[in-house]
Design a protein around this nucleic acid. Sequence first.
DNA 1: AGGTTATATAACCTATTGGTTAAATATTAG
DNA 2: CTAATATTTAACCAATAGGTTATATAACCT
Lengths: 127, 127
Amino acid sequence: MEDQLSATFAALADPTRRAILARLAMGETSVTELAEPFQMSMPAVSKHLKVLERAGLVARGREAQWRPCRLDAAPLKEAAGWLEAYRRFWSAHVDALERYLDRMEHAKPAKKNTNNKRRGSDRKKEK
Amino acid sequence: MEDQLSATFAALADPTRRAILARLAMGETSVTELAEPFQMSMPAVSKHLKVLERAGLVARGREAQWRPCRLDAAPLKEAAGWLEAYRRFWSAHVDALERYLDRMEHAKPAKKNTNNKRRGSDRKKEK
DNA sequence: AGGTTATATAACCTATTGGTTAAATATTAG
DNA sequence: CTAATATTTAACCAATAGGTTATATAACCT
């Protein structure tokens, strides 16, 4: 997973890690405190932190025996930018247009519209 | 990976899948055409499509022997919404505000900040 | 029916992920 | 130095991911 964007999205693809980021958004804290809400072992949290750290989302300091973690949201900016390019595809207005165009598409072809008797995996659009 | 958000981010955490979505943003197309730019086998692309489909990002139809894929960006909306909550952390302007608030937070007990380097959240050590 | 095209599935492989427990490390306190 | 605390690393495990090749399925076209 060489690229930054993949690392960022992969890091976000885990609820534990997202919860850690949410906690860090409230301020810098220690690993132990981060781990507290979860029912997993400390090494597991440590691994999650390493994933976040390698994705550049968490930076750490050293203070005595603590390794305080703090949020570094910079990589999220790139991710948000990527998503932004798709905004028009989820805008409600365009959704309606989409559905309209889709109906046109399916009504248009003069081909014999053989009934879709096939298996149910493509039932999504059949309203 | 039970939740929708995790499925969405996980689906986006692969450059091939992001490229597939980018292609689909230009319009519905077949699996073969989707696979063409990549140097991987067709089953590999098929698997990527299945990941995207289970994440709800791609819907498929049936047209003769083709299974046209089309983008369904709805799940991206939730992802973008999640990221949006962190926008203030990557905006440079608010970054300055953050730092200011952070200093205030840590300077609170005393009046003047006299080189108090300790971070507040891990001070349970005062015995 | 038989052949071609488009796509999916099966079976397999290796690397990575997410978790565990046990041991090591780093730092402070006494 | 020793003990305590915070955290990481090591070794292991099961499940998943991402790829392969070979085979199967589905629909079309003679």
